[in-house]
């Protein structure tokens, strides 16, 4: 996944708006740990909500766990899976 991928761009914008990261979301690598970058579990819920709204998806409960939301790449994979792509 590269920086010009529109889905990744949207994910980065959502992280910027809702992730409460201590670093700029654009400076993070696809595999960087978002929790180590300062995202709290409370902030992660807002990220989940924004992702559900942006991509018109619903995360099933089994996906609502830390490992699914711990990096831009894993979020992208989850969103892609739910979009059937």
């Amino acid at each position: 996944m590269t920086a010009i991928d529109p889905m990744t761009q949207k994910i980065r914008r959502i992280l910027k708006d809702h992730g409460r990261l201590s670093k700029d979301a654009d400076s993070l690598g696809a595999e960087s740990d978002l929790y180590e970058a300062g995202m709290t579990s409370h902030a992660s819920v807002n990220v989940m909500l924004a992702l559900e709204g942006e991509f018109n998806i619903e995360f099933p409960d089994h996906m609502l766990k830390r490992s699914v939301f711990d990096s831009i790449a894993s979020i992208g994979a989850a969103v892609g899976e739910l979009q059937g792509g």
Binding site: V45, M48, E52, F59, P60, D61, L64
Partner: peptide, 13 residues
């Protein structure tokens, strides 16, 4: 209040 926040995304399905 944490539960209230989590229930915004949890579907209990």
């Amino acid at each position: 209040s944490k539960s209230a926040s989590m229930l915004l995304v949890f579907k209990d399905n």
